[in-house]
Amino acid sequence: MASASFNPNPTLVAPTKLSSRKKQAERRSLWVDDEEDDSGLGSEDEELIDSDEVFDLIRSISDPEHKSMSLEQLAVVSAPQIDISNERNRVLVEFTPTVPHCGMSTLIGLSIRVRLLRSLPSRFKIDIKVKPGSHQSEQTVNKQLNDKERVAAALENPALLEALETCLQSAGRRGRPADAD
């Protein structure tokens, strides 16, 4: 990683409260098997996902440049930038880099993709895109993030995988990066 910062003074936003669905999931006993849950949703094919739930999954990912800050705190991701179609089994996440020349955009998008691949039912097709007009290389970044072969190759790169895992270490920790505890 280069020592120069792409955005040395990012603007921060206050984290939002966890969705009620996330709070309910946190209150559930760790010993309850999802198939025995009394909600009637026994298999992953029946589970409905909403944008708040996806946002809760990605909001706490650490920014690769500003490791003590989450993507939510930097306003890189937000619930309105997530589109879910349970009928078509598709998830679209648009993210907004902090600066138009952000060199970490591909790593940010890859972190979002991997977090969702690890967390959502396998029936979902996941599309990750830079918010239109927010990055000078928007088309190139989008192409890299949504090409299966490029993503697979990136995940085989040990240095890139280590950087990715660093970003994901804080994911799922109640919306806060690891250093916020």
Rank of each mutant, 00 (worst) to 15 (best):
F6S: 07
N7H: 09
L12T: 11
A14W: 02
P15A: 03
K17G: 00
S19Y: 05
S20E: 12
R21N: 13
R27W: 11
W31I: 12
E35T: 09
D37W: 02
D38R: 03
L41S: 00
G42A: 01
S43N: 04
D52R: 14
V54R: 09
V54D: 08
F55L: 12
D56V: 06
S62C: 07
D63N: 06
E65F: 01
E65Q: 04
H66Q: 06
K67H: 01
M69P: 01
S70K: 01
E72R: 02
Q73F: 04
S78R: 14
S78T: 13
P80E: 06
Q81C: 09
I82F: 11
N89L: 12
N89S: 15
V91R: 10
F95Q: 09
F95M: 13
T96Q: 15
T96C: 15
V99C: 15
G109P: 02
R115E: 09
L117H: 06
S119W: 02
S119A: 10
L120K: 11
P121F: 12
P121D: 07
P121K: 11
D127V: 14
I128D: 09
K131L: 12
S134K: 06
N142F: 12
L145Q: 02
K148M: 10
E149F: 12
V151M: 13
V151Y: 07
A152I: 10
P158K: 15
A159I: 11
L160A: 14
E162M: 11
E165N: 00
T166F: 00
C167M: 02
Q169T: 03
A171K: 02
D179L: 11
